[in-house]
Design a binder for these strands. Structure first.
Lengths: 144, 144
DNA sequence: CATTTCTATCGACTATTGTCGATTGAAACG
DNA sequence: CGTTTCAATCGACAATAGTCGATAGAAATG
């Protein structure tokens, strides 16, 4: 954990390299949150897990997911836990079976940031890119 | 690197756990691509780097970025390389300075998948969540 | 040409992660 | 109650990733 974000910029006065001074628009805490989401999605198996679960009405049980992948049961369990811990999946236990489902808010939160980051600077704020996901977040102050 | 995705599902016939049979909607290659993007964003410093760069008109040089973080110069260079290797940043060398800028297509590609995954299954395709980022992508063939 | 400045790479170290097999726990079933 | 079945945890291992200091390379500057 580093991320101090105190612009102590002290350039050489001659030879400047960029016009506008850089200023960060999200704080370290929020960056850590987004990074945690992204990290949880940083594995092909987990991407496919989310994809399958998202493509499904409601939920799926782990026993249904296992045969889709050539991985050990313990590995699947681990990946599901990773996703659940990150807040990307929700889990429900019923009898023998463990059901998993996607939490759309989390995905929307990450995609909200991505959409804004991908938007051409100062450009058209579609007002749609504002709506999805972004708003729902806790309360305070990030968006600059 | 597993991901065979051959539904050999052989459930016990009694006691079923889920109604619909699971079927993956993206292939392993695409999953790996998306995971690579996500993995590159799976670090707080890199999230902030992308954020700062995205919030800026055009590009920024590394020397401008360094004072924003409490990390060694070699570490910054490493993070920038990681992002560039993943296709999230583009780099340009001019004289002494190295300039970096965000590649919006890449971010849009990832956010496009996220938006679709976050969309309630079969549900209301807000038409807004479709517009941002998602559509603009290069031309070819990813979108399933 | 010697020096400075910015950037990338190298080498090392530690921490984290992905994977598996084996074990444990819990619930259903006979 | 013993057995089966699904899921989570444990322990181990190899591989990867994040970090730093030191070094090397290149371009500008004096």
């Amino acid at each position: 954990m580093v991320t101090a974000l105190t612009p102590k910029h002290k350039h050489a006065a001659g030879a400047r390299c960029t016009v506008a001074p850089a200023r960060p628009s999200i704080d370290g805490e929020r960056a850590a949150q987004l990074a945690a989401y992204a990290k949880a999605l940083g594995d092909p198996v987990r991407v496919q897990l989310v994809d399958v679960l998202a493509a499904h009405p409601g939920e799926l049980c782990a026993c249904e997911l296992l045969p889709l992948f050539e991985i050990a049961q313990s590995t699947l369990s681990h990946h599901l836990k990773t996703l659940a811990d990150a807040g990307i999946l929700e889990t429900r236990r019923q009898g023998l079976f463990a059901y998993y489902l996607v939490r759309p808010q989390t995905l929307a939160e990450l995609s909200g940031w991505l959409v804004r980051a991908a938007a051409p600077e100062g450009g058209v704020m579609t007002a749609a890119s504002q709506r999805d996901g972004t708003q729902s977040r806790a309360g305070a102050s990030e968006l600059r």
